[in-house]
Design a protein around this nucleic acid. Sequence first.
DNA 1: ATGATAATGGAAATCATTATCAATAAGGAG
DNA 2: CTCCTTATTGATAATGATTTCCATTATCAT
Lengths: 160, 160
Amino acid sequence: MQSGCRRGRGLGWWHGHIRGYGYRMTAQREAVLEIMTKTREHLSAEDIYHQLHNLYPNIGLTTIYRTLELLVDTGLVYKFDFGDGRARYEISEGPDSPDHHHHLVCTCCGKITNYTDFIDKERKLLNETEMGLSKKFNFKITNHLIQFYGLCEKCNKDEK
Amino acid sequence: MQSGCRRGRGLGWWHGHIRGYGYRMTAQREAVLEIMTKTREHLSAEDIYHQLHNLYPNIGLTTIYRTLELLVDTGLVYKFDFGDGRARYEISEGPDSPDHHHHLVCTCCGKITNYTDFIDKERKLLNETEMGLSKKFNFKITNHLIQFYGLCEKCNKDEK
DNA sequence: ATGATAATGGAAATCATTATCAATAAGGAG
DNA sequence: CTCCTTATTGATAATGATTTCCATTATCAT
């Protein structure tokens, strides 16, 4: 994939990105990114905190929050609200990446299912809509959110 | 419109709905609905609380929250998260109503703009997507959320 | 009108997220 | 490589929206 970009010192590909924004690279930020890139789950700040606590017993929850904010601001991470009262984060693949996906949220058990199907059609509609709305309302659209809610297979069965 | 349904006693059209779910009709619920139906704004629980405080000085914020939860559960009201740290509520017109709309959220000043354009195209795509996803993941979709984020006309100007 | 029970409201509790601030560490200059 | 400026960290306290508790009150079927 992008293995050709690896440097001898084992720096993550995100170093340049972070430094480019004028931020310093720290072990804590490294650690958070390490975790984010290795999972497809939708972690909360506390999830990350707990996972890191083994490796870095002294890392503070505050730092996790601050780091996540930074990562969201620089576009490395997406922040989501699935309605369970805490924010959830996921590494950004960019809206044009083939990995770009949206979410099905089970309103019963909270399970999140990623889907990539229909993304192309969605993207087409979204582009049209964004252009139309931008023009009509003079609204400069920078982002969008699509989410489906319902019952996952398991909860749907259990309900009967 | 639906004025033919009015009864002599001035009961809101929602009485039957609420009673139908086995809930009692109270002055407080009446009052919250009264406000919700008279505005196109996206009120928070506290907004409603303050607006009601003039008429019902003794109404409790707790009751507002409980009432809103009830109204959401019975489908009379939609609950939204526009990212400003508090839930916002809006009377439901039903996803098939001609008043059904989605939202543009200004990430700078928080302004919410309703739009009804493109809703038809959206609905078409959403239906297809919902059917496809339901089948593929055995996920029973009951609801969806679409939101656009960006800068409203004013904030976009001010930024320059 | 009466009684069973749902609903209310005020205060206290939760809980995710932020603010504060002294101590620490990153990284550019020399 | 070392020093120094300044961003970053982490422990703790604060915040603020939403919930929980529970004694009091109001609804409505009978």
